[in-house]
Structure formats: structure tokens, C-alpha cells
């Protein structure tokens, strides 16, 4: 996601933290909110000392996997990716022997990566760089499929992250509980299923407008909401 998308996920999470987690977050980040640090991982990924984290933001996969083959493929991948990075950050945060500095960094990554795990185009194909090389037009302006889903669809709403978090805060407790029980691999598979559908819908050069926006905005909103609830 772009800045607004990550801020929305972080704000929804802040609204759903329990007392213990809220106190821990306050201790680790005394002067910043989760919203404020939600895009830190994007800001540092091009710096030499953090270049090793650039593969943490996504998963490249072949087409046509069912859930079983998806989970086997993801678990069998070599090298770091969004799945191994989320597991690693979780381990650092729950390990009493991790230093405070390690936990602060793991928290900043976790807030960002759980958001990215819910952006469908982050769980997609390698050959088009997650839709980055699929050029499309949206409302008469040139963009690409990845960028459209990162921010352009959200920007078209004209709402701030706080406004979106409030708007999406209507989930019933049973649904929250279910989403929070879902394993990380299921979050990733949901994104994979959506991106497969998005690829099938557009060809490079497609002209997309109101109809595409109306069709997919509820899906964007759902992914941000699930991301925030599961991050909490």
C-alpha cells in the first residue's frame, strides 16, 4: 500500500489492541503512533543497510495454486519473503532475550508487512513485478496495476486514514475473532486469489474508470480492514 493505506491498517490495529499490547507499543514507541511509523519500512528499504529487507515486502508465486500447493510452495521457498519476515518479527517481539532496539525495529516492520500481506498485488507474479510492468489508464491517467492497488483506488475516495479507519470500524465481534484466528498463510492465499482475478481482468494498456473503481473499492476496503484487525 501507499502511505494512506498503511496508515489506515495501523489505525484500525490501534483501535483493536488489547490493554497489554497497547502498553507494550507505548513503551516501545513512546513518541510515535503506529500510524506514524507505518511506512518506515518503505522509507528504509533502499538504504544500503536495509537493502536486505526489500524482499520482505512481497511473495512471488506461479499461477494456479490451490491452498494446499500454495502453502507447500510458500514454505518451500528459499530466501526471505513476506511470510518468513512476519514470522521473524513475531519471534523477535515475543522473545524475552531480544533487545529493546530489536523489538522496536521488529514492531515497525510488522506494522508495515501485515499491511502489505493484505495488498493483493504484493502476493503475485515475479515476471511482471507484482503488476508494476502492466501499464493501465485509470481515469485517463497512465499508471500500472500495482500502483493502482497501492494507492490510486484509495486516493480516489479522498478520505484521510483516520476517516477510513472510522468508516471501516463496523466489523462485528464474531467476524473480528474469525479473522484474527486465520493463519498467516490464509491472509496470503486470499491476496493471491484476488491478484489472480485482477490479472485475468486487465491487459496491458487497459482503460479503467468508474466501473473498475466501483467494482473493486469494497475489496480494497475489506483488505485494509482485515489487515488492521489481524495486525492488532
Amino acid at each position: 500500500w501507499g502511505v494512506i493505506g498503511h496508515q489506515t491498517v495501523a489505525k484500525i490495529a490501534e483501535n483493536n489492541l488489547n490493554i497489554r499490547a497497547k502498553a507494550a507499543v507505548k513503551d516501545l514507541l513512546p513518541d510515535e503512533s503506529l500510524t506514524q511509523i507505518s511506512s518506515w519500512a518503505d522509507q528504509v528499504r533502499s538504504q544500503p543497510e536495509y537493502r536486505y529487507t526489500s524482499s520482505w515486502h512481497f511473495l512471488n508465486l506461479p499461477d494456479g495454486l490451490d491452498y494446499n500447493s500454495f502453502t507447500q510452495t510458500v514454505k518451500g521457498l528459499s530466501g526471505d519473503n513476506i511470510y518468513t519476515a512476519i514470522l521473524k518479527c513475531g519471534k523477535t517481539l515475543s522473545d524475552p532475550s531480544s533487545s529493546r532496539a530489536q523489538k522496536v525495529e521488529a514492531l515497525k516492520f510488522m506494522v508495515h508487512l501485515v499491511g502489505d500481506a493484505h495488498q493483493p498485488m504484493h502476493i503475485s507474479r515475479a515476471e511482471d513485478k507484482g503488476g508494476n510492468t502492466i501499464q493501465v489508464q485509470f481515469n485517463g491517467k497512465g499508471t500500472n496495476l500495482h500502483s493502482l492497488w497501492d494507492g490510486k483506488l484509495l486516493d480516489a475516495q479522498g478520505l484521510t486514514a483516520d476517516e477510513m479507519a472510522t468508516k471501516f470500524n463496523k466489523t462485528n465481534p464474531a467476524q473480528i475473532l474469525q479473522w484474527q484466528k486465520d493463519p498467516i498463510l490464509k491472509w496470503l492465499f486470499e491476496s493471491y486469489q484476488i491478484s489472480s482475478k485482477l490479472y485475468a481482468e486487465v491487459q496491458s494498456g487497459s482503460k479503467l474508470s468508474e466501473e473498475y473503481y466501483t467494482k473493486h473499492l469494497p475489496e480494497v476496503q475489506l483488505r485494509l480492514e482485515q489487515g488492521g484487525i489481524r495486525l492488532a
Binding site: A13, L17, R20, A21, A23, A24, R100, L107, R230, A232
Partner: peptide, 22 residues
């Protein structure tokens, strides 16, 4: 949620007072 789970046993590091620093 993942933060509610991984931070459930979080303990803040004890703050060192200035007069305890070596």
C-alpha cells in the same frame, strides 16, 4: 491479532536512573 499475541508477555526494560549509571 498478531500484536495482541506476540506482545502478551512483554516486559519493559527497567529504566536506569541517572545516579545508577556507571
Amino acid at each position: 491479532g498478531i500484536l495482541n499475541e506476540v506482545l502478551k508477555n512483554y516486559k519493559p526494560e527497567p529504566k536506569i536512573k541517572d545516579d545508577q549509571k556507571t
